Simulated scan of single mutants.
Amino acid sequence: MTLLYPIENSLYVNITNLCCCKCVFCVRNFTDSVGGSDSLWLDHEPTIEELKSELEKFNLDDYEEVVFCGYGEPLMRINEVVEFATYIKSKKNIKTRVNTNGLSDLIHKKKTAVLLKDAIDAVSISLNAPNKEVYLKVTQPAFGIKSFDAMLDFAKDCKTCVKEVCFSVVDEISDKEIQESQELATSLGIPLRVRIKSN
């Protein structure tokens, strides 16, 4: 069971396989692993103690950041993300990042960005589309059409309590939709990164 895995200068945390979206481009639809890791499918949701034990196998001095991003939506377990990130920072003052679909507020039925304050240094949010209709088609969220606006609200909240916030889109959408996504991101004062499908 792979809980931590390195990719280049980053150490990734595979904290859950749970997710509230069924994105058409999701890497786990095509492969069991990323970046040469072993299978990222978990046989159970790992405990904090299991994660701490696994961390002992790695030297944090070898990495520039720790990234919460595995085969699930990390903020499904937002309390565990914050607890483990806080523990990591107690070991070394290393950058911590969460890659998320941004639907944490809907998952937990409350405002959640503030919980990341101090524990998480950067948040990358999957914008995925320039409007709610395309978003619904591409991301297929369990919460339906309200998901897009909830994701944008989460992003705005993150700007007030997290040092770095960015959006990402996958080149699954058209060039026109990518341009429109860029315009939306710019209007919110949040940088946008275009990701290559299945990467």
Rank of each mutant, 00 (worst) to 15 (best):
N128L: 07
G189C: 13
A185I: 08
L18M: 12
D149S: 13
D38W: 11
T100L: 05
N101Y: 07
V24P: 06
K117W: 05
F25Y: 15
L152Y: 07
R195S: 08
E54H: 12
P191E: 13
E45Y: 09
K22V: 14
L188I: 09
S198T: 14
I94S: 02
S10W: 06
K22E: 11
V34R: 08
Q182E: 13
K197W: 15
N17Q: 10
G102D: 08
T100W: 01
I190Y: 03
L40M: 09
Y87C: 00
E180N: 07
M1N: 12
D171W: 05
L51C: 09
L55H: 11
K110S: 13
L60N: 02
C21R: 05
Y12D: 00
I145S: 14
L51G: 09
G144S: 15
K92C: 11
S37Y: 14
V98F: 04
W41I: 13
V162C: 01
E50S: 12
T112D: 01
V24Q: 08
N128S: 14
V138H: 08
K117M: 12
C21P: 06
G102I: 03
V138N: 05
L106P: 02
M151S: 06
F143V: 09
K22C: 09
R195P: 13
V98D: 03
D171H: 11
C158F: 05
K146R: 13
